[in-house]
Design a protein around this nucleic acid. Structure first.
Lengths: 268, 268
DNA sequence: GGCACTGGTGAAAAATCTGTGAACGGGTCC
DNA sequence: GGACCCGTTCACAGATTTTTCACCAGTGCC
């Protein structure tokens, strides 16, 4: 569960962003929003809070009630208590001294202009990016996110093993051998990009091969290999091929040689 | 000295920001700017560059020459080569799918709209913030114990002796001599990295030898020595070689001369 | 219908990777 | 000098992987 600490004095901004943030799930669990309308109340809360209440990220309106200092008093309180909590400023005063103060005086992680195209989305993207990085930093000393999952598919990005409903995918031409390198890379990138499709050119680039060298025919061939591998893990009755035809699994995107991974619903 | 890597196809932006960046000193030393006008040239440069050329931060124009993918191909090349270099996108398309792709598809650290009040200052503030944070981040090296175990294998990291099911591994060409140093080190690193595979280049780096000097042929040869040593400890009937072919012990990874240690299950 | 195009399929060619025997060359020790 | 020992190379064949080719079906369009 992502806990977001938010200081904002204007009701209409709370009304505008609040529902968006609460509806968004940043880590497969509901998002918890703590909103404060007054800087003093926020500071009090921070001082009294125990470590269990540590937020994952803080959103701060710098210029509150006509007062520059209000927002920064909250950011200072936060930094004293939890130096690791990333601070994101949300403000109507981008490009001014307030932004400078946020970055140079406070250790702001980001500064988002309230007035811009598509703010709600931008806010979500940026919060997500901040959370991801904060999460990675914690886990780097241990073993970092090495498992990529999508429905019944699990890819171990360290050993490159791929499991489908618990069964390891093997090389369809030789069931005793693991899936060949190229197909497993392709699968990984497809899943990572899901639900966006990857065209031949983009895939060539991700694979770090000469895009002259990697033709659509090759891509198609590897997709075939993958589909067969899945199919074999399911018994080799063509069940996975049917799933693909029905629009799940590895589907053709219909646009200039692009394929796409779509999570397979349990019913299939 | 802060080294900034910058990809921008439009001359007027280079003219606008270039002098500002070069005049700015981010770390008490002159700033070095490397500007590329073409994505392909930038990618080439990245692939060829050695580690001394690692930039401190990268500025990328996402949408170059009317092509979305161009900027992202550079960002991918950068991430492949130097995963720690923070990426800042500079774009005229804030709030669009390009920004989303930058944050979610690439690990963008920031995304700055070219059209905004006071851009030059904002750019400097944000680069400074990114550099400060990147500098603060430290990697914690993992502490190794004196004894490394993996299944039936035990390596004494002090005396460098290796025991397999209680039997000390010997030099396969001369059973009265201990395993040679190089194979011992290689085995140790493989086990430490397990189940992550180690490519020739990475292994050369760990062995602290010139990567020019340590070819894949050498690696292969040492792997052979190791496999034979294990085999001899098991009676010399080729039993260990069979284990390797079955995907346990020292296995080939299938990609770019990489080997990997996989714990041997007791049944073998 | 003819045509251009996309995408699935079988098969084969091309490229690459890997195991193996053997040899080379610099050290060291006697 | 000569006999090791050890790390590195070379050459080559067999496996394995990757790319390519040829063909065909479906689809939309004129």
């Amino acid at each position: 569960m992502a806990r977001i600490f938010w200081v904002e004095d204007r009701t209409h901004w709370v009304d505008k962003f609040g529902p968006v943030l609460e509806a968004e799930s940043f880590d497969e669990a509901p998002t918890e929003l703590e909103v404060f309308k007054f800087a003093e109340a926020a500071c009090q809360h921070i001082k009294r809070a125990d470590d269990a209440a540590r937020p994952d990220v803080a959103l701060i309106d710098a210029h509150m009630n006509g007062n520059d200092a209000a927002g920064f008093s909250v950011s200072r309180a936060l930094q004293r208590k939890w130096p690791d909590v990333p601070l994101i400023f949300l403000s109507e005063h981008a490009g001014t001294g307030i932004e400078q103060e946020a970055f140079e005086g406070t250790g702001a992680r980001d500064f988002i202009a309230k007035h811009q195209r598509n703010v709600e989305s931008v806010l979500v993207w940026r919060i997500r990016a901040v959370l991801r990085e904060a999460g990675m930093r914690q886990t780097v000393p241990r073993q970092a996110g090495e498992r990529l999952e999508s429905g019944d598919l699990a890819i171990d990005t360290v050993s490159w093993e791929v499991y489908w409903r618990g069964i390891k995918l093997m090389n369809p031409t030789n069931p005793k051998r693991p899936l060949a390198p190229m197909p497993r890379k392709i699968l990984r990138f497809l899943v990572e990009a899901s639900p966006r499709p990857l065209s031949t050119a983009v895939m060539a680039d991700k694979l770090d091969v000469d895009s002259e060298r990697f033709s659509y025919a090759s891509y198609r061939q590897h997709i075939r290999t993958l589909r067969l591998a899945f199919d074999q893990a399911m018994g080799g009755q063509g069940a996975f091929l049917d799933i693909c035809k029905a629009g799940e699994g590895i589907v053709t995107f219909g646009d200039k040689g692009a394929y796409c991974w779509k999570k397979v619903s349990r019913a299939s």
